[in-house]
Structures are given as structure tokens and as C-alpha cells.
């Protein structure tokens, strides 16, 4: 975070924390929606069937695995982008 004073960094961190809470609830809601839509199809009773319950549990695990994997690809991509921008800047400064 070059370019920010300590006070600015603190202010930013507080805002980021708030944002993360909001972000987390958004992702959580999306996950509930997605796994419900994918797994729940039996409305002859109000209790989850064994099949539905297992499906939801696997849906959550699979979602965590896939978002973990995509997160790694995303970070690699960002690191690469930053490197390219730095090289561009340096060649311009020469």
C-alpha cells in the first residue's frame, strides 16, 4: 500500500472489514440459493430427505473446492498483470 499514510491505512482497513462482512453474506446467500435450487426437488414433505441432505453437503464442499481453485487462478492472473504493468512502466522510464 505505498502512498497511504498510517491513518489512511487504518481507515481503509476498517472499511474493508465492513465490506468483507457484506461480501461474505452475499456469497453465503448465493451458495444457499445455488445448492437449494440444485438439490431440493421433493415437496411432498417438509423435512429434507436423506438424498437432499447429502446433495446439499456435497454441493457446499464442491463449491468450496471450486472457488478455492478459481481464487488461485485469479491471484496468479493478477500477479502476472501487475508484473506486466511494472515492466511497461520501467521501459517507459528508460
Amino acid at each position: 500500500m505505498e502512498g497511504l499514510t498510517q491513518a489512511e491505512t487504518r481507515e481503509l482497513e476498517q472499511r474493508m472489514q465492513k465490506r468483507q462482512v457484506k461480501e461474505f453474506f452475499g456469497l453465503f446467500s448465493n451458495l444457499v440459493d445455488h445448492c437449494f435450487m440444485s438439490c431440493i426437488d421433493d415437496f411432498t414433505s417438509k423435512s429434507l430427505t436423506t438424498r437432499e441432505s447429502g446433495c446439499v453437503s456435497r454441493c457446499v464442499q464442491k463449491h468450496m473446492a471450486l472457488s478455492q481453485r478459481l481464487s488461485e487462478r485469479f491471484q496468479e492472473h493478477n500477479a502476472q498483470m501487475q508484473q506486466q504493468q511494472q515492466q511497461q512502466l520501467q521501459s517507459q522510464l528508460r
Binding site: V32, I40, F43, S45, K46, S47, L48, V56
Partner: peptide, 19 residues
């Protein structure tokens, strides 16, 4: 709708606990 709501709350709770 009533059953769907009951299942929705269950799934919500279940996923919350799993996380």
C-alpha cells in the same frame, strides 16, 4: 410454498453449520 420455506430454513441452517 410452506414446505419449500421449511426446507429453505433447514438448508440455510445446515450450510451455515457446515461452513
Amino acid at each position: 410454498l410452506d414446505r419449500c420455506a421449511a426446507k429453505f430454513f433447514d438448508v440455510h441452517m445446515k450450510i451455515s453449520e457446515q461452513l
